[in-house]
Amino acid sequence: MGPSEAVPLIIDRNAIVGHAAVVDLMAVLLPLSFVLLYLRVRGWDVPFTPFGIFASLFAKEGKPGFAARSRALLSATAQDILFLKRAGGRCEEPLHTWGRGLVMWGALGSVAATLLAALTDPAAVPMALTDPVRLLGDLSQAALASGAAILILRRLSNGARRRATDIHTWSLQCLLLYVGLSGVAVDALSQGGSFLAMEAMYISQLASISALLLYAPFSELAFLVWKGSLLVQKSLLDEAGPPG
């Protein structure tokens, strides 16, 4: 999952924070986050960065043909990342696997819902639950929040694990939790709460997303993105690697 995936935006044209402002904010923050991620990975002095995966599509070695490569890219992404066939699938601790899975699937769902929302204008629909896009957004954000909650509770529940967890892991997981929770809350308030409360919640969600985008390149997330794309690239170039 990339930092861009955790951007659930429920757009309300009549809101205090207008559509254009949100688009402008993201237009600044998203590229900045990518640049920071790139610099951070480069700082490790590794030849491969997550952006290298696109270069791999056109690389000379490995599977021939752009179409074959694209297929390989999609299947590797699906197998290795989406269905946790690599790290997740090998992990015998279900709680952790579920936590990670929910966070990732939730984040991806939120991004998808956001993009769809930009096209379909779901804010016009009075009942959130009747709109498939808003439903997807809510479910995804609930999944993201519950995944993060699982990860946090899992670490909290054991004294040794609690002590061994560093501040970066806590920060990242709490940010993820807040992004998910606030997303669900915004939609819930839009159905029955006061406009101000909803707007306040929406602003706090935007703030948390911004923080996540700026913070992600310096957190474990950067490593996970790097590792995930590295694994996909390995499959793409047909290198010898651990069995999927």
Binding site: R90, C91, E93, H96, A160, R161, A164, L230, G241
Partner: peptide, 13 residues
């Protein structure tokens, strides 16, 4: 790269 990052080891170390 199989490490799932669960952190059990760090707690046990």
């Amino acid at each position: 790269y199989l490490c799932s990052g669960c952190g059990l080891c760090s707690a046990a170390c």
